[in-house]
Design a protein around this nucleic acid. Structure first.
Lengths: 334, 334
DNA sequence: TTGTACGCGTTATCAG
DNA sequence: CTGATAACGCGTACAA
């Protein structure tokens, strides 16, 4: 695009060879003699030749671009996810087109369309809701490589790699129960926390504890503030002695409130969060947390996606694959 | 790329019109009759036609893609920067190719090359070091639209939008001095904090305070841990009564150490950080901080970049532009 | 070892 | 209003 943009044509004219020879020489084809190859390479270097990947993509039907669709970036899990994927893809010779949906089903659908029209070789996405599952299923059925980064509870319409959130919640609640807790609260977001709640309720059930809707609090907005504001009702209303929070931020906010009220953690009330963010280990009372293993998820997901792309190139069929990664409970003092 | 990938050719055959007519009809050209336009649109919808943007880009010499180069993503400022830019670009009809350099000059240079070869319409970057300035200058001189997101202190080789870090540090130190502090420490990272140090030293100088190298601590690695570990030496060695930290994380870590030691903030030692991250307002002693106004920076930068792209399309010349945004000092209790 | 001819899917130019 | 025809820059057969 730069004004001095030079193409293979120019270096062909300059060296006296045909465009074809230039093309072959530049990619080091053995069919070109060492001598002319060097001559051409040297000329290309002097003219500062930069290949036009768009043209190459058109003829090769391959862009070496992967689309990434995330609901947001400010969530530390997704921040790390994006960064890890970028690194892994780069190592494999791919680049990344990033799309943020802001939790909007319309933007999610739009992102899928845009990426397809841009001929990306594959898509990784952190899906929002079921809203676009039919679309995703259709793409998968047409053998478009698409890997979801979540999808435990539901019938994934495509390949998926995910942390088993339900198992994580189950582990956390079981840990509370082992410590003697019977009245266990749960603070969760309005969306996307169904799996965690399933783990919460089934752990209660398996231990013969009745589910009390009054011990579940659904919050909105910033986790820290909402945790700070919502824990009071659980503490007073049901006298919960332990609270599972669907995010560490929520737990940290709640613990802040407790400290200000002179309520001791974990003696008076215990907490477990999700995701094991950095701040959790540094909290006044280091927070026990269900770890989200970003590196494992992104690694598996990238491997799976690249495998799908390769399979497609070789027209190999393969069944839908779902990879669940079991979270660890990082036990600290809360 | 999907197996059923259908092109304008198919819908031309299906409807009996020429490829050309199809192309024009699909983009709603007034030169096509309403009737045939509807017929063609309907057919396209039925066949689920999706335009091939790669082919379009090749002929139009425009990809509607912007390259973003960042040193990392885990820094909350950059996380928000990436997210904001994505939103702004999307609104303007562009998509974003994201590259992370991991603070490596080689990766930064590589990223520039890749983006150019991918024919992006422009680049926004958070530059690492001067290592690639000559390359950037060359690109800018060839009228390649490229906007830097930092670049106060040095002679930017290209258009730039940035927070005036030096002014921020100056404000912070002046604030300390107004409060009666004379022994003011500075904890900074090994790289990219020269501007802040310049502001620090010039504020000292302007107030007749001698610069004491012993009061400057250069740290490495995670800010929180490093702040926690490094503040002791400043407190003991020089009995600093106030410390400017080049990041909020550092200040938060340092304040944590103080609390554990029974040192009162701000009575025994005061702190100011940089960037005003969310956690700062929630700290036990809410942290005074030099705010980084991400939204302003990204907005100005995007506007400037898109203007440059337009100018280039219309072959208009324009002088290099540098936009500095003055940071606010968010005064809290620390 | 090298050159010719054609195609990738779309838009742009010019006739009709 | 519509249709040929030629680009865009590169890669791949096939021929020489």
């Amino acid at each position: 695009m730069t004004s001095n943009s030079i193409r293979q044509k120019e270096i062909a004219e300059k060296t006296g060879y045909s465009i074809n020879t230039v093309s072959l020489a530049l990619k080091g084809s053995p069919r070109i003699s060492e001598e002319t190859r060097l001559k051409i390479m040297e000329c290309a270097r002097q003219l500062n030749y930069i290949p036009n990947v768009v043209a190459r993509s058109l003829v090769q039907k391959k862009t070496n671009t992967i689309g990434i669709i995330l609901t947001e970036l400010m969530n530390p899990i997704l921040t790390e996810t994006a960064q890890e994927i970028e690194q892994l893809l780069k190592q494999a010779g791919y680049n990344m087109m990033l799309m943020i949906t802001n939790f909007s089903p319309e933007q999610e659908a739009e992102a899928l369309d845009v990426l397809v029209s841009r001929q990306v070789d594959g898509i990784m996405m952190y899906p929002l809701v079921r809203a676009n599952f039919s679309k995703i299923r259709a793409m998968h059925d047409q053998r478009f490589p698409i890997v979801l980064l979540a999808g435990g509870e539901y019938d994934s319409p495509s390949d998926a790699v995910y942390m088993n959130r339900q198992a994580g919640a189950y582990k956390a609640v079981s840990h509370f129960i082992q410590d003697g807790h019977r009245r266990i609260g749960f603070i969760r977001g309005a969306m996307n926390d169904e799996e965690k709640q399933n783990g919460y309720t089934s752990a209660l059930q398996d231990n013969g504890i009745d589910f009390d809707p009054g011990l579940v609090s659904i919050i909105q907005g910033d986790g820290y503030k909402a945790g700070y504001a919502s824990v009071q009702s659980l503490y007073e209303k049901g006298k919960a002695t332990a609270v599972l929070c669907s995010k560490d931020h929520i737990a940290l906010g709640a613990m802040r409130w407790c400290r200000e009220q002179g309520i001791r953690v974990p003696e008076d009330i215990a907490f477990i969060g999700f995701d094991d963010i950095a701040a959790s280990s540094f909290a006044d009372v280091p927070l026990t947390s269900v770890q989200y293993d970003v590196k494992s998820v992104t690694k598996k997901a990238t491997e799976l996606l690249l495998k799908r792309i390769e399979e497609k190139e070789h027209k190999v069929g393969a069944p839908l694959q779902k990879i669940a990664i079991d979270p660890k409970l990082i036990i600290r003092q809360s």
